[in-house]
Design a protein around this nucleic acid. Structure first.
Length: 174
DNA sequence: GTTGAGCGTT
């Protein structure tokens, strides 16, 4: 058994030099626990890292999913919807699994989306498929963020003061 | 024929 280092270049680069402020941060903290203390000399005040068993700060566990839709990144260019679906299939009932493909080039953009029936399944799949290998590449699963077509235009059921309707729809487009 | 940051279209 010889470990082929064919796909280790990009993988290692992603695992160690990954600047993704999402799931990869956990990996980076796992592997590289040495924070860059590039200050002037040693810091006089010994501030304990907030990664202690967490009393007040939010450093405990990952936040729960607020949407059954997951954003899978790190996909290989050769990975298609079928592959993504087949990878996330045994973790729950996939309502939809599709890889973002560019119309112009007609090929995968390198990321996809998976939607489960419930958030529990999505969360489980996320914990199980996050930072795992798929088609030779490490994929990262995170809750979808943008592009919510038609979810709830007016989900406010506040029957308190309907007179002053100051509905500030904080959109992503600023 | 591919090498990598990010959030898709019916």
């Amino acid at each position: 058994m010889v470990l082929s280092a064919s796909c280790s270049s990009a993988l290692l680069r992603r695992l160690f030099c990954s600047s993704t402020p999402t799931s990869s941060s956990l990996l980076r903290a796992t592997f590289c626990s040495s924070s860059s203390s590039g200050g002037s000399g040693l810091s006089s005040n010994l501030h304990p890292p907030p990664s202690i068993f967490g009393d007040d700060h939010e450093v405990a566990n990952v936040p729960p999913l607020t949407t059954p839709k997951l954003f899978v990144s790190g996909l290989s260019r050769l990975t298609t919807d079928e592959k993504l679906q087949g990878a996330f299939a045994p973790f729950g009932r996939l309502l939809e699994a599709k890889v973002a493909t560019d119309r112009i080039s007609g090929r995968s953009k390198g990321f996809g989306f998976v939607r489960y029936a419930t958030i529990e399944e999505a969360e489980k799949a996320r914990q199980e498929m996050n930072a795992t290998f798929l088609d030779g590449w490490v994929i990262f699963v995170d809750p979808a963020k943008r592009r919510q077509p038609k979810a709830d235009p007016q989900p406010d059921t506040r029957s308190s003061h309907a007179s002053f309707t100051t509905n500030k729809t904080v959109g992503w487009c600023g």
